[in-house]
Amino acid sequence: MKKRYSGIFKVLLVVSLVILAGCGGDDAVTSGDQVMDDAVETGTLAITANGEEFSREGFLSKDGWELTFDQIYATMGNIVAYQSDPPYDTDQGWDIGYKTMVELAGSYTVNLADPQSNPVFLDQLHDVQTGHYNALSWDMLRAAEGPSAGYCLLLVGQAEKEGVVIDFSLGIEQEVAYMGGDYIGDERKGILLPGGTADLEMTFHFDHLFGVGEEDATDPLNLEALGFEPLAVLAVDGVLETDLTALQTALNDDDYALLISIMTHLAHVGEGHCLAQFIQ
C-alpha cells in the first residue's frame, strides 16, 4: 500500500514540477534600474563646452556673410550637475529637485573656436556618486583676466561678403544664468557607471545669433536671429570692434532688443533648450 502511494506521489511530483517549471519562466528578468539604484560606487564626471561646427569651421550667416572665427572666448562658472528627481524640465522653472548634485568650483574661460577641441574640456570631478546626471546649470560670467577680460563672451573673426572683408571683435558683457535638463543629441550623456567616466556638455548655438544662409529666410531660426548685416554697417575701414555697451546706442532699438534676447537662447544642452535669466 505504502509502495503504491509512493508511486502515485512520484507521478504527482513529476506533474507538479512540470507545472511549476512552466509557470516560472518570466520571473528571472532583472531590472537595470535596480542595479543602478543599488550602486554606491563612484566615477568621474567631466564637464565640457561646445560651440559646434559653426564656431570651429565658420558658416554663412542668414544675410550672406561668410563668417570665420579666430577665437570665441566663453567664461563659465558656478557649474552644477544634478541627478534631478523628478527629471528636470525647463517648464518647471528654476526649482529643481534632486537626489545628488555636484559642483565644479571656480570659473573657466575656453576658446570654442579651437578646431582641435570638439568639445572643449573644462574640468572633471572625481569620486562622484554614480547615476544619471540629467540636469546642468551654470553661469556665463565676465572673465576677470585674460584676453576676454570684462566679457562673458568675446567673438573675434572675419566676415566676408561680395569682396568686402571685415575684421570683427564682438564682446558681450551681460552675464546670464542657464539651467538645462537632459542632454539631447546623438548619444545620452551624464550616465555615470561605477568606476566609469561620463560627461556633460554646455552647448552654444551661434547660428541663433547670426542665422544660417542655407536655411530658408522664413525659418524660425533665421527670423529670430540678428544676422551680421546690422553689425557690418558699423564697421570702419573694414574693422569692427564693439561690445554690448556700444551696441546699445549704435544699433536701433529692435536690433538691440533682439541681440539681448538671443543671449537667453544661445546656450543649450546639446540640442535641448535651457532656461535663462540675466544676472544683474
Partner: peptide
C-alpha cells in the same frame, strides 16, 4: 507593458530637440 516606469522619448531635427517622459 512588462517594463513599467518612466519611458523617455527624444525627438530631434536640424539642431532642435526635446525629450518627453
Amino acid at each position: 507593458p512588462e517594463i513599467p516606469g518612466l519611458w523617455e522619448v527624444q525627438v530631434r531635427l536640424a539642431g532642435h530637440g526635446d525629450l518627453i517622459r
